[in-house]
Structures are given as structure tokens and as C-alpha cells.
Nucleic acid binder design. Sequence first.
DNA 1: CTGCAATCTCAACTTAACTTGAGGTCAAGC
DNA 2: GCTTGACCTCAAGTTAAGTTGAGATTGCAG
Lengths: 150, 150
Amino acid sequence: MPTRLKPSDLLSIGEIARRTGLSVSAIRFYEDKRLIEPVRSGGNQRRFLRSDIRRLSFILIAQRLGLSLTEIEAELAKLPQGRTPTTRDWEAISAAIRARLDERIAELTRTRDRLDGCIGCGCLSLTHCAIWNPEDQLAEQGPGPRKLLG
Amino acid sequence: MPTRLKPSDLLSIGEIARRTGLSVSAIRFYEDKRLIEPVRSGGNQRRFLRSDIRRLSFILIAQRLGLSLTEIEAELAKLPQGRTPTTRDWEAISAAIRARLDERIAELTRTRDRLDGCIGCGCLSLTHCAIWNPEDQLAEQGPGPRKLLG
DNA sequence: CTGCAATCTCAACTTAACTTGAGGTCAAGC
DNA sequence: GCTTGACCTCAAGTTAAGTTGAGATTGCAG
């Protein structure tokens, strides 16, 4: 028997797509963006580790959280290159995400409270309310729509 | 004195940009998308009502919340066309946004709790954990990356 | 073998949300 | 009444995140 990849441990792109719910094209796109690096079969087809499912799931969660693929790549870069990530590896990276999650929740809660204040006090007069009266708060911070809250 | 717009109550696009923190081009873009409808001066320059500042602030908040401009347009469509929106008008629309906010906070909180569960139980084994094991949960729901959580 | 579904690459298209640039007009101060 | 900065329109460019399609291979099942 020639040196061949053990098919038992490797998954085709279709298989991975089925398991993650991603489309095949999205997975190829992620490879392009270096978010995953599958190996290739003799016939040049992609072969994925089982741990890549986790990697892709992580991408989905992080996106949900509002991270861009670029930011996600940065997080994933913390994972080992060659070997399958261990539980400990994932713990670290999950903790980072968890921090983001906390931040975002806090931010939205703040926004909600401010909004409640506005509705409650009827201050929509535009001259007194912090939330509806961005003036002063933001001003110059470069081009594009600058952030209103937070 | 010919019939002229009272300059005292109307703002130029530059003024509006300054007060909202938006760029001039973004404001023109929003007009294109029918999110605001300024009147025109004799010389064809845009003139905004003071209440348009509120309108634009609302857009910024809603975007922050993850609404697309199209969705925002739908919300804003509830506001009166001709007249300056009243406090009551804004109350209604703010309440809609507040509901979204609640939803989103709840969703993120759920995600956080699940993530905590995963980190805590060390179940990253991929066969037992709901969050890391999308399989079964999602499967077929049309093209594109389907949602993992929620 | 043969067939056919699954893959492959590469280029082009899509949508959202803006920005940039070219070429021309308005209006307010001196 | 001129100059200069703020505006105007319209077309094209940009980034993110994918999708779609063409044309060529691969690989498993019978």
C-alpha cells in the first residue's frame, strides 16, 4: 500500500458543508481568506480535519457577534498551525470571544437604558437629551458615519 | 420681499453633517435611499428641518442595532410625511427599536451562557455540545451561511 | 470500464453602504 | 462684483462577504 491519506479521518468539502451548514463556496472562500487550510487529496481535492468543523463553527459564532472575517482570522491565528487544537486551545479562544460578548451586551444594555430614559422623560426636544442629541458628543473622528453611542 | 424659505428654521447639509456626525456624502446617499427628504433652496441646495437631525440620529442607532437601511426605511415610513414628527411619533418608533434591542440582548445572553457551559464542561468533544456541534441543528435552510445559534 | 455526482480553478457578478472625483453652481464676505 | 468655500449632479470606485457559471477533473458504484 502506497503512502496515502487515511480517508477515515479526513472529510471532503461536501461533508464539511453538510456538517457546518455552510455552503461549499463559502468554505472555499474562507480558505482563500486563510481561515482554514485543508490538505489536498491525490487528485487535488480538499480534505478537512474533523477539528475544522470546530474552526468553522467558531467562525459562525464570531460573525454572529459582529466580528469581521479579518478579526476572526486574528483570533484563529492563535490556534496551532500543524496539530489539531486541544481543548485548552479552544478554551483560550472562547474566553476571548466571551469577553467580546460581554462588551457587546453591556453596550446594548446601555443603549437600551438611555433610550428608556428618553422615552420616559419626553426629552426628545433635541436640546437636552444625550441620546438624541449627538452634537458635541461625536464631531470629528475621521470620515464615514461616526459612532453615535458607546 | 419675495416668498422665501425662512432660513432661520432650515439647515444646510453641512450644518446637518456637523450636528449628526455623518458625512455629507452619506446624507446625500440617505436621501437617495429615501430615508430623508429635505426641501430645496432657491439655488437647489438641500435644506433640512431640525427634526431631520432626530431622524438621522435614529438611523445611526438603528444601524448600530444591526438593521439594514431598508429595514430602517420601513420603520421611518411610520413617521408623518409632511409635518415635523411629534414626541408621540417618536415614542412609537423608539418602542419598536427598544423591542429589537431586548431581543438582541436576550440572544447574546443566551449565546454567552451556552459558551460558558461549553468552557465549563469541557465538552468541546464535538459530539455532545450544542454550541460547537451544529450538525442536526441547522442542516438545510437555503444557501449561504445558515445561522448557527438562536 | 463507464457513468455521474462531487470537486477543482478562475473570473465575473451581487448587495450593502458609502466614498471619491470631475465638472459646474451658489452665496456670503470684502 | 469678485473670490472662495460650500453645494450640486452623476458616474465610477471600494470593501465585505459571498455566489454563480464555465470548463475541466476526480472518484466511487455498478
